[in-house]
């Protein structure tokens, strides 16, 4: 695992402060990170730890107050609106907690929309969309509207959509947060399969401890800094410690159900 690998995301000295009313809040207090191509990364941390902020920075959805974020060695703060749109369209696939499919479009149209933006012709997009929906196990439901699908199925459509333009990175923001235990597991398996078979880099912000087993590395964020980074091997050894981390999370007032509370 230690051989030279290509860095796909590099975060250098990133800080982010928000002004809430008259108070300045430092959400991130200086984060350095390096993520390699093909890795499965989980960003873990209690609510309010700066986890989501870090995640949004990596995805080019938010700009750092100080510091830089490089994707594929390109400093994304230097990009104009057009290039940023290109980045979001081709380089990054997004999966959201609330699925966020476009309700007026069928599953297939949702999947082909990014391809349309990318200038692919309608027939090719159609074929590729059906192929992707088959890949996520929804081959015969492509005509359905999002509201006619279950939560798990909607998230599968979202996974297929995130793959539309063969992105290098998939960013998943709490992808299992709105799903029950078994459906969540299915989505995690699906993402693991993508990471292994397609070599996609997966970065996921999560509260879900089911994610730990499939992650190559886990980045623990606490109080706006990276608390520690653990590789999977280390995680297996410290499995007994997970419960402790869980209670640590709880104490900081995380309202999200983890699904494995027992």
């Amino acid at each position: 695992m230690n051989e030279e690998r290509r860095t796909i995301v590099r975060v250098v000295g990133v800080t982010k402060s928000f002004t809430m009313g008259k108070v300045e809040v430092m959400a991130l207090k200086g984060v350095d990170l390096e993520i390699f191509e093909g890795e499965y990364i989980s960003i873990m941390g209690p609510s309010g730890s700066g986890k989501s902020t870090l995640f949004n920075m990596i995805g080019g959805l938010d700009k750092p107050t100080e510091g830089k974020v490089f994707i594929d060695e390109v400093d994304i703060s230097q990009l104009d609106a057009y290039e940023l749109a290109w980045l979001r369209n081709r380089k990054i696939g997004y999966i959201f907690q609330t699925f966020n499919l476009i309700p007026v479009m069928s599953a297939l149209e949702n999947v082909t929309l990014p391809m349309t933006f990318a200038g692919m012709n309608a027939d090719d997009a159609q074929d590729k969309g059906i192929e992707l929906l088959k890949l996520v196990g929804l081959g015969e439901r492509f005509q359905h509207k999002p509201l006619e699908l279950s939560g798990g199925q909607q998230q599968r459509v979202a996974v297929a959509r995130s793959l539309a333009n063969d992105p290098a990175i998939i960013l998943a923001d709490e992808p299992t947060g709105n799903l029950d235990l078994s459906t969540g597991e299915e989505i995690i398996e699906l993402m693991q399969m993508l990471s292994e078979e397609r070599g996609v880099t997966i970065i996921s912000a999560t509260h879900d401890y089911k994610m730990l087993n499939v992650s190559d590395r886990v980045i623990w964020v606490r109080d706006g800094v990276v608390d520690r980074v653990e590789r999977r091997e280390e995680l297996d050894i410290s499995v007994g410690g997970i419960g402790e981390k869980l209670t640590g999370t709880k104490r900081n007032g995380s309202p999200e159900p983890t699904g494995e509370r027992g």
Partner: peptide, 9 residues
Amino acid sequence: GVMKCLGAL
């Protein structure tokens, strides 16, 4: 927001 995440200008 989703449209913009997918690359809409």
